[in-house]
């Protein structure tokens, strides 16, 4: 029974990880930008939702929409005012990395100054577990987050596979000419990648605000997990990132079954390290991607 409970907890956490990792993977896959400020989009949208829904009593659809807009705007501004100017020079990987890290530092402290430095939660009955079987507790939010994750992936797969912008987004890094064949501007497509990649973190951010709670430094952890999930799933594969996120969420929770709790987080990075050594292309990556 404990195993089943831990498995369910893992599924819920995995759904949240998958939602954040997919955004990171989408942005990296199409623009080759290692967007370590991705966690900031998570923090911003989470706090916007908290502020509207919990402080101002705005209805949840409105608050959600506002959070989506905020995350998308953040992604767009990052592309336009940080990454594009840097890439005008012959930017090295680490130039982008340091700039993005600088942005996350600014955002983290800005949130601390404006919203306070303690933990903030959105109180909702949805996060309260009920005993569905003897000793098995499930909160409505578990089902909701798994459902929303499936919904988002279905929509995203359709978008990437069937629409011109989506196909162009996937082709952008390998074959910019194909983008032009569709009559699209590569710069514009990159912006779309940032907008969509940032917007998909919103459900994860809202669910986190309802369950674990928000704090200004939350973005760092989100970024680490997204990065690990992206590698485990295989760089450039949105499907892989989703599976990677799910795997990490499950691993972190199932670790409680046999190990002492203090090792659970290390399990994430054991999985990551093992994948890099033994299967660097990840679940779905093409072997050539991992030279």
């Amino acid at each position: 029974m404990v195993f089943l409970q831990l498995f369910l907890n893992g599924l819920q956490l995995g759904a949240i990880y998958a939602l954040t990792a997919v955004g990171f993977s989408l942005i990296f896959g199409s623009t080759k930008i290692f967007h370590v400020a991705h966690g900031s989009a998570f923090a911003i949208s989470g706090y916007i939702y908290w502020w509207l829904a919990s402080q101002l009593d705005v209805a949840w659809p409105v608050a959600t929409l506002a959070a989506v807009l905020a995350a998308a705007a953040f992604g767009l501004l990052m592309e336009r005012f940080i990454y594009r100017p840097i890439q005008r020079h012959e930017a090295s990987f680490f130039t982008v990395f340091i700039a993005a890290f600088g942005v996350s530092l600014v955002i983290q402290n800005l949130i601390g100054s404006v919203a306070g430095r303690g933990m903030e939660t959105v109180t909702t009955p949805l996060s309260r577990s009920v005993e569905i079987m003897d000793g098995l507790f499930v909160a409505p939010i578990s089902a909701i987050s798994i459902g929303v994750a499936i919904l988002v992936f279905t929509a995203l797969s359709y978008f990437l596979g069937r629409t011109h912008v989506g196909i162009a987004m996937r082709a952008l890094s390998e074959n910019p000419d194909l983008v032009r064949v569709f009559g699209l501007d590569p710069g514009r497509v990159a912006q779309w990648a940032f907008v969509i990649g940032s917007a998909v973190v919103v459900p994860g951010a809202i669910f986190t605000a309802m369950t674990a709670g928000l704090n200004p430094a939350i973005g760092t952890h989100v970024m680490l997990v997204s990065l690990a999930a992206t590698i485990v799933g295989g760089i450039g594969s949105v499907r892989g990132a989703a599976c990677g996120g799910m795997l990490l969420g499950l691993a972190e929770n199932l670790a409680y079954w046999k190990l002492d709790p203090q090792w659970s987080e290390a399990v994430t990075f054991v999985v990551l390290f093992a994948f890099i050594i033994f299967r660097p292309s990840g679940f779905f990556g093409t072997p050539t991607a991992a030279r």
């Binding site: 674990a212 972190e252 409680y256 203090q262 659970s264 987080e265």
Partner: peptide, 20 residues
Amino acid sequence: ELQVQRSTQQFASIAAKVRE
């Protein structure tokens, strides 16, 4: 006794252990 790391933020599974 359940020991947690300082960086841990998810406690749903700790709760499961406590219930046990």
